[in-house]
Design a protein around this nucleic acid. Structure first.
Lengths: 250, 250
DNA sequence: GTTATATGACTGACTGGTCAGTCAGTCATC
DNA sequence: GATGACTGACTGACCAGTCAGTCATATAAC
């Protein structure tokens, strides 16, 4: 009877193995034998004397959770896996997050916030041309999203968003609408200065980011079959947006 | 003890209710009391005399499966739901498909094939300009994908593809690589005739389809918050691709 | 310095609801 | 009477969430 056989799983306990501080084991302790089979996140002792401070542990859990959610999707992600990866017991997850959903949302929220601010400054700098903003924006996306595990978060939002309306709304509010507003302002500026010959981008700033989305999805689906030359793609994209030959380098 | 509480479910038996052909019910038939609580897909009797022919039933199952997979994602989709929607018992699903995964793959394969052929003819017609091919291609995508449940299939591929390498490869082979090849040929043609002033599209035909992808994802995530004017988006996109003012109408 | 007690972070076996897949049984049709 | 499409109760793996129990550390008392 073939049963809910899941795709390949990592073996448990793949976290950082290490300084098991030899708590004596009794032959058959009923429940909870401390440090039973798991390594602490770090052997370093914090200033307060605790083995690992709460923030570090929280990060470790979020880190592990991202890996597992990204690999299996929300529903198929097992909390046991996350716990094992984070080097804690499952119960510990519940000391830090109310439930699976809260953990998932915390993950997305945490990955999003730090980026948007920096983008804002860049786009608002005076004397910026459209070409230079696009250059900067695309470089930033490659470095901070495609080049990091944040791309996994973006993919999770795309995949799981339809089933988490609250998440989609949060993402729209914090990322999409803000990003589009910036891009729209840049485009309007470009039209005003004559750098852009069409109002298309001012009306649909989505056209600026569409290839970034494509690159993210391609990376997840086809990169093994046919890797995408993302820098080349984005250069070509800038070329089209700016209406031919815009081969500027910073 | 809060347990795997799933998101809102449709009540079972939402399929086409109808002609229960009054098979007599015994008070407590042990197993399988035929036509227990479910409506047949159709009351029409086929030429061969069977209540419903195999192909029709297969379609009904695929139809129901698409709805359930699309709503809940692969893992969270319940075969019981699909069966209820299709108006059959769960066991019947296994007469038509080996298992959940085979059903999922059949779904995607079935939705994909009919489209590609037509696109091919359109792009190969002699005397076609880039502008007219794009016009046609975008219209076709709006009508045949965004306008139908095929968009759900596309979204499923995007969402579940990373966990189904075989599916991603199939989709790449049958759709992506073929579509890009066509687009690349069209772009090369455009460069040769002078209709396109840049080789960007010939190098990265992905740039042509990126906004279609964006539209599909937007529709799934944000359409309730901020609906996207897809025809406008694609008009603006054509404008940019063709290097300004391309406001043609068919 | 040593021992006793308190604290709370952490553990992991366990519970109970869930659901993919099975198969003995039913019945319309041949 | 035989065939085979169809049924649906059932099995057993599965896993989110719980909580009684453990122990490192801190603090107090001697």
């Amino acid at each position: 009877m073939a049963r809910r056989q899941r795709p390949a799983r990592e073996e448990p306990g793949t976290g950082q193995q290490g300084g098991q501080q030899g708590g004596r084991r009794r032959p058959k302790a009923k429940p909870g034998s401390r440090r039973g089979s798991r390594a602490p996140v770090s052997a370093a002792v914090t200033a307060s004397g605790r083995k690992v401070d709460a923030e570090t542990r929280r990060e470790a859990i979020l880190d592990a959770a991202l890996a597992v959610f990204a690999e299996h999707g929300y529903e198929a992600a097992r909390l046991d896996d996350m716990a094992a990866r984070a080097g804690v017991a499952k119960g510990t997850l519940y000391l830090y997050f109310k439930d699976k959903e809260a953990l998932f949302e915390a993950l997305v929220r945490g990955a999003v916030s730090p980026i948007m601010g920096r983008l804002g400054e860049a786009a608002a700098a005076p004397g910026m041309t459209v070409a230079s903003v696009l250059e900067l924006f695309f470089a930033m996306f490659q470095k901070e999203v495609l080049g990091t595990r944040r791309k996994l978060v973006l993919r999770l939002v795309i995949s799981e968003g339809p089933r988490f309306p609250a998440l989609a709304e949060f993402y729209y509010r914090e990322v999409v609408s803000q990003g589009l507003k910036m891009m729209r302002n840049v485009a309007r500026h470009g039209v005003a200065t004559g750098e852009l010959s069409s109002e298309a981008l001012a009306r649909f700033p989505q056209l600026i980011v569409a290839p970034l989305l494509l690159a993210t999805i391609w990376d997840g689906l086809f990169s093994k079959i046919d890797p995408l030359d993302v820098p080349g793609l984005l250069r070509a994209h800038r070329e089209l947006l700016l209406g031919f030959s815009a081969r500027s380098a910073p």
